[in-house]
Amino acid sequence: MKSLARPLRARIHLDAVRHNYRQAKHLASPARALAVIKANGYGHGAVALAQALTDEADGFAVACVDEALELRESGIHNPILLLEGVFHPDEIAVVDQAGLWMAVHCREQLEWVLASRPSRPLICWLKMDSGMHRVGLAPDDFAASHARLAACPHVGKIVAMSHFARADEPEHPYTAHQIAVFEQGLAGLALPRSLANSAGILAWPQTHGDWIRPGIMLYGLSPLPDAHPVGLQPAMTLESALISVRDLQPGEPVGYGGRFVCERPTRVGVAAIGYADGYPRHACDGTPVAVNGQRTRLIGRVSMDMITLDLTELPDARPGDPVELWGTTISAHEVAESSDTIAYQLFTGISRRVPLFHHSLTNGVAS
């Protein structure tokens, strides 16, 4: 049972997630789409997201076997791709038993697949390093690796995939370079292709191919610098409440280290959230926050359990009033920019003491 004593919670809007998934597919039609729900659905709750999308998702993508098994054990039967493949040859037996798809991104994984004895053909997503230079087969080795997989009797369908390093910079030529490298490495191979992450879906339509992999856009944010207007809906509202209001005089400091000093008579509110909950400790003075739906600002250093807000222009604000940290009034991008980080980290950094409440207007789900 979830405690309601502390007024902090993250509301997850499942209808928004469904809308964003459909928007990704619409933009890349007729490509199929793997909803990327690794890292507990970017902090939104992977099981609840998968259950909300199960009737329409072409599949899901996670990082590892443990994340996939959590979905299977929750009754999710859609295809699930392991984006990092397996970390040990023994995991292929789990892949086989659970009916998972797996990335193959290095020679070691290739050898493990060839040496395995699954009960049914393995679905392999063969990954090329087109320029990200993390994981992936060298373009010159790709055709030979594909030939070995294709000749293996216990390998089924093969999808060619790669990953972009700078697709969120639409004016930078590196993505075009990666596309060219990928296509050159696939010359003569009639394989389904998967290149486009969220930035690729939005900014590089020539990369849509057969499969897209929407990640951050599934949660309502564009990765592009101009906040690309594509009709995405925020999927998370992180909210708390005021627990204290006081008046301070000019010259009075606020919070640890006295980073903020009042320059005028200032009403200071305290909200129940801090860095132990996942709110960024390095958020600077001026980081936007909303109280009663009205924008104001963070003042003073973020504490473990509390933050301090400027209520001077909100004279009616009182303890108990709602505070939105990000959601529909405050974009997570704004908070991230004020904290020298990215929204991905904000979402995945939400700690376990923040309860997730999943809502759906479509089917009345609330948990």
Rank of each mutant, 00 (worst) to 15 (best):
Q51E: 14
A187W: 01
G320N: 09
A5C: 04
G255N: 09
L224G: 08
P234F: 08
I158T: 10
A343Y: 05
L248F: 05
H146C: 09
L126Y: 04
G231T: 12
P253I: 02
H282N: 12
G258W: 10
T266M: 10
C262D: 06
Y275S: 15
H13D: 15
Q345R: 14
H282S: 15
G251K: 00
G300M: 09
G255Q: 09
L309I: 14
R134G: 11
Q178C: 14
D285C: 11
A63S: 11
A241E: 12
R281D: 04
I158M: 04
Q97M: 09
V245F: 02
A33I: 13
A63P: 01
G136Y: 01
R32D: 11
G349Y: 01
E171R: 11
P205M: 07
G209S: 03
S331K: 06
A241I: 05
A317R: 02
N20C: 07
T296P: 13
L361N: 12
P153S: 10
E171F: 03
L27I: 15
A336D: 01
P250V: 07
I243L: 09
E171M: 12
T266G: 09
K38S: 08
A143V: 13
R166Q: 11
P121K: 04
D226H: 08
A235V: 13
G41R: 02
P280T: 00
P229K: 05
R267S: 12
S198K: 03
L361S: 10
R22S: 04
L248K: 10
L314E: 08
A203Q: 02
V95T: 13
A176R: 13
R148A: 14
Q249M: 06
P280S: 08
G45C: 07
L186G: 09
Q233R: 15
M217G: 00
L195T: 04
L298R: 06
